[in-house]
Amino acid sequence: MGHRALLAYRRDDTDDGPADDTPPFDDADRPLSREADETAEDPRYDLHRSHWGGADFALCGRLSADTPFATDSSFAVDPEPIATDCSLAEIVGEHLDFLHHEAVYRVGTDYETTAFHVCWFGLEGDCEEVERSETVGHGALVAVGDDADYFRGWFRGTKTVVGDAVDRECFSPAEATDYLAERVTAWDADREVILPD
């Protein structure tokens, strides 16, 4: 089954890219260095996948200009993008399957990497009232801290309690989704949370 991850590689805002929409590569199959303003309001990303990269956020610290796709490891990233020139909102709302991916990484042009927990808001495993939940665009990304295992357990426990509240008609499924979004956002005021638009 693997430990699937998606990786969003920051594009150079001044570079429209080659005609085939793939990033430029040098002779060593590495993306060419891109000088970009990391503070741009709507940065764009090329989206890649890794079959095993979600395991314990193993790609943190493994990506660099010399090894942009960690091909020297068992967590290698597919160099062929699955989508190009996307915003983070588009990735979260249209490309990320919250049920089937364990991690998302945002990779800067300097290869500084931020890992995110993938928090799916689907409740069918936690209550009888919900038979099926969307898996794309239905969850949140929460930046990983030193408490990764604790956070995963906290989120699973929170979903169980929310699912019980739905079964007891304290929440509608829509209200449960809103509540889960509020809870992950409030987890740590200093931690980045990305929700679908």
Rank of each mutant, 00 (worst) to 15 (best):
A28E: 04
T84A: 14
S133A: 14
L32C: 05
T39G: 00
D26A: 04
E129Y: 12
Y45P: 03
H138T: 08
D97K: 07
R106W: 04
G53P: 00
C119M: 13
E128V: 13
T114K: 12
L88Y: 07
G53W: 02
A70H: 02
L47H: 02
D37K: 07
L99R: 11
L141N: 02
Y105K: 00
A58N: 10
H95P: 04
E80Y: 12
S50I: 02
D78N: 15
L59Q: 03
F57K: 06
H51E: 14
G108Q: 13
L99F: 10
E38A: 15
H100D: 12
D27Y: 04
R44K: 15
S64Q: 06
P79A: 10
V142Y: 03
A58V: 07
G137A: 10
A76C: 13
E94Y: 10
V130S: 11
V130I: 15
E128K: 13
E35S: 13
F75Q: 00
R34F: 10
H100V: 11
E38K: 12
G61Y: 03
H117G: 11
F69H: 08
S74H: 10
G139L: 01
V104C: 14
A76V: 08
R49L: 08
G125S: 11
F98C: 09
D42Y: 06
E35C: 08
L59W: 05
H100G: 12
F25P: 11
E102K: 12
D26R: 05
H48K: 07
A65C: 07
A70D: 00
T71C: 09
L32M: 09
A65Y: 08
C119G: 02
V142N: 06
G139M: 03
L96Q: 05
P43M: 02
E102R: 10
H100A: 11
E80F: 13
T135I: 12
L123E: 01
H51F: 09
F25E: 02
A65W: 08
F98D: 04
S33F: 11
F116V: 02
I91E: 04
H48N: 03
Y45W: 15
E94W: 04
S50W: 08
S87G: 10
